[in-house]
Amino acid sequence: MSSHNPHDLSRRDFFKIVSSFVGSLMGLILGLPLISYFVSPALDEQGGEKWIPAGPLDNYPVGEPTLFTFTLTKQHGWEKTAQSYGVYIIRHSDTEVTVFSNVCTHLACRVRWHDDVSEFICPCHDAHFAEDGTVISGPAPRPLDKYEYKIEDGTLYLHLVEG
């Protein structure tokens, strides 16, 4: 039963248009929330900042990179997870220290101080860093990251900023 006027919509075309319109609408109504549902944790408030006490400054011998580790408990979805952090603290004087993150700037493995060669070396892809954090060799794109710090009553505090 085709229409007489070529401008008239046939019954078949009408249903084609209505079905694809309703179908797309339903797909959109369900599809957009599903995307939001999947990316949701990435949109949540991340990080924050915190001052971490690293003990008396006297714990750290002058001129020698010393590893200091600490753990923070974080809530991830339905679970609390303990996250461990490591920093190398180099004391220069009674008021000045340098605090390096031990996270390699290449692909986030953890670097280790090697006393015999006086370098930080990453075990994953052999990135070498000098005592001042600069890149000596290997794939690292930038020097080791530094933490801000403060010294109050002889106690060292690290400024942890995330996100």
């Binding site: 929330p33 939001s36 549902y37 949701s40 949109l43 979805g77 339905w78």
Partner: peptide, 13 residues
């Protein structure tokens, strides 16, 4: 519980 409270549109899904 997390799906219902913490995830966007979790209640809908």
């Amino acid at each position: 519980n997390y799906i219902m409270q913490g995830v966007r549109f979790g209640w809908l899904v």
